[in-house]
């Protein structure tokens, strides 16, 4: 189990990570989610031993890792791109660590393991290819196979899917989750994409400006973001506070709260809706019609409508509130 206690990393006095505390239990996958520049990559590098830690403690199974150099920690690291050894074939890349330990003798065990891993990541006959001839997704799979070859205590992933296009990202995210669970690997994933985090991880830690602002099971964090900035980062479209929050929550049948975050699909056009509003603009998307609606007392909000109903600007519509797409927050 990895545990961080109030870890602080600073560059020349500029704090990049401040008082970060988290735990990753064996076999689970934790995602650290945060916008670019929030210090999550620095945190990852500090855990790997590539950055010195100013204060705090990084421990594995209770043993402090302060004096342990990177190559002795047993934490494999995977980046978003650019980490394969261009001068070695795929098989030699994957088997890199195995050959390090056993010298350069041809080891049939190593070859077999390389074959197994390539099968695991879905690249069965790629052994003789060179990294330069592979696509982005294939390169990431090779990097994953290479990291798993050492049977690491912890797998660290730095935005592994960011360099891939959207469709490939979805597919590889699902594969990644499956592979990690099948191998039973403990993993810590760092990303700015909440879809990636939700697809791969079990637990979530949200990071902002060097601090960890919220952590817990993914569903819990998602359902109850701790403040407005976190909610907006997690994909909620808007945050209402004060009287507007109270009005919306009572329309949805929920108890009152200081603030509430809504997803874009929280308000839907329906004949039996409790709220009324006037459509300002509408836009067609493959899944539904997205609307901007002016609701008196609440302001301009997003809403959705089914593809066959197509309200135009200026129309009055009735809106139903979906309480599963709202999150009440303890403070704005």
């Amino acid at each position: 189990m990895l545990s961080l206690q109030e870890v602080t990393v600073a560059f020349d006095g500029d704090p990049a990570v401040v008082d970060a505390s988290l735990e990753v239990s064996d076999g689970s996958v934790l995602a650290v989610l945060g916008p670019s520049g929030c210090g999550k990559s620095t945190l990852l590098r500090a855990i790997a031993g590539l950055e010195p830690v100013q204060r705090g403690r990084i421990a594995w199974d209770g043993t402090d890792l302060a004096g342990t150099p990177t190559h002795k920690r047993g934490f494999a690291l995977m980046f978003q791109d650019g980490q394969l050894f261009d001068h070695l074939t795929v098989a030699r890349n994957v088997g890199y660590a195995l050959h390090l330990q056993r010298g350069r003798r041809r080891d049939p065990d190593a070859d077999r393991r390389v074959g197994e891993l390539l099968d695991l990541v879905g690249l069965p006959s790629y052994g003789a290819r060179l990294p330069g001839t592979l696509s982005g997704g294939e390169r990431q799979r090779v990097a994953l196979a290479r990291s798993l070859a050492v049977e690491p205590r912890l797998l660290l992933l730095d935005e592994p899917l960011s360099a891939l296009d959207a469709g490939l990202r979805e597919r590889l995210a699902g594969d990644l989750r499956g592979i990690l669970h099948a191998a039973g690997t403990t993993a810590l994933l760092v990303t700015h994409d909440h879809d990636e985090a939700f697809a791969v991880a079990d637990r979530l830690a949200v990071m902002r400006e060097g601090r960890i602002v919220q952590q817990g099971e993914i569903a819990d964090v998602w359902r109850a973001p701790v403040d407005a900035a976190t909610a907006l980062f997690l994909g909620y479209a808007a945050v209402l506070d004060g009287a507007a929050a109270g009005r919306l929550l009572s329309a949805a049948g929920l108890p009152a709260a200081p603030a509430v975050a809504l997803r874009r699909s929280a308000l839907a056009v329906a004949a039996e809706g409790q709220l009324r509003g006037r459509v300002i603009s509408s836009r067609l998307t493959p899944e539904q019609v997205r609307l901007r609606v002016d609701v008196p007392g609440l302001g301009e909000l997003d809403a959705v409508a089914a593809l066959d109903a197509h309200p135009g600007p200026g129309e009055d519509v009735a809106l139903r509130v979906d309480h599963t797409r709202l999150a009440a927050m303890p403070h704005p």
């Binding site: 590098r45 790997a48 031993g49 590539l50 990177t70 190559h71 002795k72 920690r73 047993g74 934490f75 494999a76 690291l77 995977m78 980046f79 650019g82 980490q83 394969l84 050894f85 261009d86 001068h87 890199y96 660590a97 390090l100 330990q101 990097a143 290479r146 990291s147 070859a149 050492v150 690491p152 660290l156």
Partner: peptide, 27 residues
Amino acid sequence: LDPRPGHAAATLGATPTQVFRTVTLPA
């Protein structure tokens, strides 16, 4: 030189000398 392959090699268990010999020199 991109330092990331070197870092990846270090996390895979390569000592600094091994990183120099197997990653840096070929690059």
